[in-house]
């Protein structure tokens, strides 16, 4: 009996050790990012892992906007764009997923096939057309335009959510229908509350889009007015050949500052996961 216990203990240790090793590998570049951002040298350090001299000067500089770096302003811009995008995208994804998963109507299959076909086309190519579409509505150099680009086609990414909705027991919906619930109520009051994990996933991924995209943002915010930039283009431009030597550390510091709120968001979201586990257990 004691031996069994010892075995179990060592297997637990091994298990956690494995996770620790993996986590270590995963975090090396992130640690490097964090360390570099505290370097006192403004260019790139290629000879040592840790900076030679530590300093928080580049964080201070980030909050003293100059013509190149207007970080606080960029952060606000991106935050606003991300919030609106996230609401619209999540709504679109859930709406399409519900319609295709739970409801049955004649055009369902053709529409789903059409969505697959649209997803196959290299989206990068269509960028120029999207740009001129926005321009004709006078939406270039505006956040409304960017938000539309980020969330307009969100419905196409419905498949994961649909796969999830497919696992919601159909009997529940049928019972509700017999009780006289409208489709809208089934959607809002039965299916949505059961789908927290997938909602969390959708919210996270759509919230991230504006923080990560630099291709569309660069194209649409093309007036060169730096206080209108999103974090992504602002930081990306710091790596311009003529600037990298003076701004590389600031770029790292900016990267760290962007990651912190997103990480916090992820951590809050984790709680929902736990709730999802218990919810699933009750359901099962």
């Amino acid at each position: 009996m004691r031996k069994m216990k010892g075995n179990r203990l060592s297997s637990i240790v091994m298990h956690n050790l494995l996770i620790a090793v993996l986590a270590f590998i995963w975090l090396i570049p992130i640690v490097w990012l964090a360390c570099t951002s505290f370097s006192s040298y403004s260019g790139m350090n290629t000879s040592t892992f840790f900076p030679k001299e530590w300093s928080i000067i580049h964080y201070i500089k980030l909050f003293q906007p100059d013509t190149v770096a207007q970080f606080p302003q960029w952060f606000m811009n991106t935050f606003i764009i991300a919030c609106v995008t996230c609401v619209i995208s999540t709504a679109f994804v859930l709406m399409v997923a519900y319609a295709t998963s739970v409801m049955r109507f004649p055009m369902r299959r053709p529409l789903m096939n059409l969505a697959v076909i649209l997803n196959l086309f290299p989206g990068m190519l269509a960028m120029i057309a999207v740009y001129f579409t926005l321009k004709s509505f006078n939406l270039t150099n505006s956040y409304a335009g960017l938000i539309m680009v980020y969330s307009g086609s969100a419905g196409l990414g419905y498949l994961i959510a649909k796969g999830f909705f497919d696992t919601v027991p159909r009997a529940l919906c049928e019972a509700a229908r017999i009780d006289g619930c409208s489709e809208a109520r089934i959607f809002a009051q039965i299916v949505i509350p059961m789908s927290r994990p997938i909602i969390v996933y959708t919210v996270i991924s759509s919230f991230l889009v504006p923080w990560m995209d630099f291709v569309y943002a660069k194209m649409i915010l093309n007036a060169g007015i730096s206080e209108k930039y999103t974090v992504a283009i602002g930081l990306y431009k710091m790596l311009d050949k003529s600037l990298i030597n003076n701004y590389f550390t600031m770029f790292c510091a900016g990267g760290v500052l962007v990651s912190i709120p997103i990480s916090v968001l992820f951590m809050i979201m984790q709680k929902f996961y736990v709730e999802g586990i218990t919810g699933g257990a009750v359901k099962g």
Partner: peptide, 13 residues
């Protein structure tokens, strides 16, 4: 209005 566009990438934009 003054905007930012590096000389080396002006053509692309």
């Amino acid at each position: 209005k003054i905007g930012v566009e590096s000389e080396s990438t002006a053509k692309d934009t």
